[in-house]
Amino acid sequence: MSNCGYHGRLDQAVFIWVGNSVTQCPGQCAWPFHQPFYGPQTKPLGSPNGDVGVDGMIVNIASIMVGAVTNPFGNGYYQGSAGAPMEAASACTGMYGKGAYPGYPGDLLVDLSTGGSYNALGVNGRKHLLPAIFDPNTKECSTVV
């Protein structure tokens, strides 16, 4: 497919789909844990849970869920023109921490025992990297850290 995931609807039921980040466009869908296909060729970050594919999927699931919640039917909240809309997370692609810019995910926390980069703690202390989302009040991308 041509994307890492998407959301849509069947009648009034909203759904999301996310592919395996390592087997499906790893340089795009598993970045920043995998070498990018294009742009600055910086060293990939350490995967917070030791699995580049799963950690890449978590980033994509979070992004797609934000879109499904804020724009479930594809005609609501988005930034930009209606012809090329960017949803709350896609408007902040590649941004995970303060100071992010194209090719640099931003200042992140690093697990000293594994070298994995993260910005959020989950259940049982699991570490995750979650994308920034666009804040319509500040008109800026907002990150967890």
Rank of each mutant, 00 (worst) to 15 (best):
R126K: 15
L108H: 06
P32K: 05
K43R: 09
P48V: 06
C25S: 13
D55I: 09
T93P: 02
S90L: 08
S113F: 10
L10P: 00
I61C: 01
M65V: 11
I58W: 14
P32H: 12
H7R: 00
S47N: 11
E87T: 02
C141F: 11
Q12I: 04
T143S: 04
G125I: 06
L129A: 01
V54K: 10
V123M: 09
C29P: 09
L10D: 07
G97S: 12
C141V: 00
N49R: 15
G106H: 07
L108I: 05
G56M: 04
F15M: 05
H7Y: 02
I64T: 15
D107S: 04
Q79K: 07
N3Y: 14
Q35K: 14
A82F: 03
K43S: 08
G8K: 01
G56Q: 03
Y104P: 02
V18R: 08
S90M: 12
G39S: 10
G99P: 04
P105A: 10
L129P: 02
V123R: 14
V59T: 00
G8I: 04
Q12Y: 12
I133N: 06
W17T: 14
F134H: 13
D11C: 02
T93D: 15
L129V: 02
N124V: 14
I64A: 12
G39T: 10
A91G: 04
